[in-house]
């Protein structure tokens, strides 16, 4: 099964790479036909990712979301499917190019990380594992969309403000659609993030006895949560939108990445399983 799993991961990597290539060509040429192909390839990559995660589940006997490799693959999976579910409702011009780039970078990191299947530590042997970790990483998927939208917003805003129209001007969508994307993705991502923290807290009560005990990972999750909460609050109360919202989405995502990796490698703590 290890052989199949290895081959399947290579297929995932190849499909994601192809999706990036096709979206890249579409970005340059802006031909409808290429976009259709790119979408199909990304969908295929998404399906392959799902299959890989299922296979890994069968292989190890638990939800594959504990090691670094597994977490990142799951992260890439949630970004891909968050995008595919999102674009089912809205079309944002050339968003796919940015998303497929992010997915490919994540999968490259996953390819470098150790593929080894470790025995599950006793603390994680619970049905809370898929619920808590799954929800948390799905929230990261939506927050990643907001991050990409934020970068696109800043690029487009720069073109419009500087009045020198470069390569991106015609290729990027309107500011309003990017701002809307930011708002929708943050709302969805924030709900999942909140659920992730609540389920984590309940699980902590069961596993460690207290709901909250200021472990670095918990602290940083809370910081991230406050960053997003403040932004959403400001959007509704003071009308923070546009550039400010885009910058906040980028800062928030940086905090997400730090919570995911920075805490594990720099701060440690009892929550750092994925080494």
């Amino acid at each position: 099964m290890g052989e199949i799993s290895y081959l399947l991961f290579q297929a995932v990597l190849a499909a994601s790479c192809m999706a990036l290539v096709f979206y890249g060509i579409f970005f340059v040429k802006q031909k409808e036909k290429i976009r259709t192909v790119a979408r199909l390839v990304l969908l295929t990559a998404g399906v392959l990712q799902t299959l890989y995660i299922l296979l890994r589940y069968l292989q190890s006997g638990y939800t594959p979301i504990t090691s670094q490799h597994e977490t990142i693959v799951f992260f890439a999976w949630s970004v891909t499917w968050a995008y595919l579910s999102f674009r089912w409702r809205y079309t944002v011009k050339n968003f796919g190019t940015f998303i497929s780039l992010l997915v490919f970078i994540l999968l490259l990191i996953a390819a470098v990380a150790s593929h080894a299947i470790n025995p599950l530590p006793p603390a994680l042997q619970s049905w809370w594992l898929p619920v808590h970790a799954g929800i948390a990483v799905i929230s990261y998927g939506f927050l990643a969309l907001a991050f990409c939208g934020g970068i696109m917003y800043l690029l487009q805003e720069h073109e419009l403000k500087s009045k020198r129209f470069g390569y991106f001007f015609t290729r990027l969508p309107s500011l309003e659609s990017l701002d809307q994307l930011n708002s929708h993705c943050l709302a969805t991502g924030f709900v999942f993030l909140t659920l992730g923290i609540i389920t984590g807290s309940i699980w902590a009560r069961q596993a460690w006895g207290t709901y909250w005990h200021w472990d670095p990972k918990e602290t940083w999750s809370l910081i991230t949560w406050f960053l997003y909460a403040a932004q959403i609050h400001q959007r509704f109360s003071a009308g923070w939108r546009g550039k400010r919202a885009a910058i906040m989405a980028i800062i928030g995502f940086a905090s997400v990445l730090f919570t995911l990796w920075g805490v594990t490698y720099l701060l440690g703590g009892i929550h750092s399983y994925a080494q």
Partner: peptide, 9 residues
């Protein structure tokens, strides 16, 4: 054209 890049619709 510019208005469309700012507002979309």
């Amino acid at each position: 054209e510019l208005a469309k890049k700012i507002f979309g619709n």
